[in-house]
Nucleic acid binder design. Structure first.
Lengths: 201, 201
DNA sequence: ATACTAACAGACCAACTGGTTTGTTTGTAT
DNA sequence: ATACAAACAAACCAGTTGGTCTGTTAGTAT
């Protein structure tokens, strides 16, 4: 007589699905495997989610989005001088994230690459999340602009987008070859790029 | 009595498979669909390729690799001053590539993201191709270093890797939102980064 | 206590998927 | 002309996959 807990059941499915999607992609994720790992049955699954793709949307909104905000967006509020602090933030990142991230990269970008051209529902949701991320960066650069840490004529939006793109690009390359030196080298180049935003003294 | 042409049959399968992989990913590509589009039968397919994954390897080596060399590596030999010429090269790129690239991004990076953590055979091959690309860039930067276009202390390897990563990152973001302005903005930021490599005058 | 609904369990299914097998035809060396 | 291997065509197959259906049980309002 295990007492019922629908919220926990749902969360369990979401977390397991998140892991499986992260490891094998959305198309590679198997509903049966999620069920096996979570120790649940089809009935439970299709009671909580209408279809595989709806589960995918839920994972995106309820697992990936909060994780991104925790790891990438929240630390941004502490940044005063982006040229100095963003590289510092990146340095500490390696140890602030679980091993699964080192192995399988950024869950958001993985889904973006795999699904945004396959399904409009995914694309829209991913776009919104990327936008939130970008706006958070833009706020940092605008603030830094006012405080004279970077030049007036810097295009904060373009810089934000490029920083995110470069990060995702580097993380992506790590899938092919991942060594600690690669990550530090990547940091250095981001630092060089950010340094170019400094006002001419 | 259509005259037989095994080489052409093989090439036909490879090209169709390339398109399907580019559009749906390797896991999303269906052997049956490749057969339908190429107007061939199972017998033809499994005569030329041992399995789906072997076809994938062949597409990588015989379709994607040559394409990358044509579009990205060959133009590099004409580059004298990377700070000036790489942005220029990127500018002309948009019109030098087919529409499928705008829609589905870089076929190499797509496979890298999807398959390098799934299958070691893919990872190895992709790694080699990325390496070729990186070495081509490194040669450009080393040459530029000798000619005084960039600083002596520039880490050509790290810069090459970062340029490729940033490019792939930007192309990846385009899948989520692709407008011409996004591409020009990306170019500008790459130009800013490269500008930071100039010697201090 | 009763009725009713949410929350499952688990058998079942149709479509799909990569791969195999068998047979036939075409080119080619002898 | 004959033999033989390469190059296919096409039916076939077993395992998988997302999804459905029926039934059962736990919670909850009355």
């Amino acid at each position: 007589m295990t007492t019922r807990n629908p919220q926990q059941t749902r969360e369990r499915l979401l977390q397991t699905a998140f892991q499986e999607i992260h490891a094998h992609g959305f198309q590679g994720m198997r509903v049966d495997e999620v069920l096996r790992q979570s120790g649940l049955q089809k009935g439970a699954f299709y009671h909580h989610f209408g279809s595989k793709i709806e589960l995918g949307y839920a994972v995106l909104e309820e697992q990936i989005k909060p994780l991104l905000e925790l790891i990438w967006i929240e630390p941004l509020v502490e940044i005063e001088d982006p040229v100095r602090d963003i590289p510092k933030m990146l340095e500490s990142l390696g140890s602030r994230i679980p091993t699964s991230m080192h192995e399988h990269g950024c869950p958001l970008n993985n889904l973006a690459q795999e699904m945004s051209t396959q399904d409009e529902g995914f694309r829209e949701r991913i776009y919104e999340i990327f936008n939130t991320w970008m706006e958070a960066f833009t706020a940092v650069f605008e603030r830094a602009k006012q405080n004279g840490y970077i030049r007036d004529d810097v295009d904060s939006c373009a810089v934000s987008r490029f920083v995110i793109a470069a990060l995702e690009g580097c993380i992506g390359i790590f899938k092919v070859k991942n060594t600690p030196e690669q990550w530090t080298a990547c940091q250095s180049q981001i630092a060089i790029y950010l340094g170019a935003l400094r006002p001419v003294t």
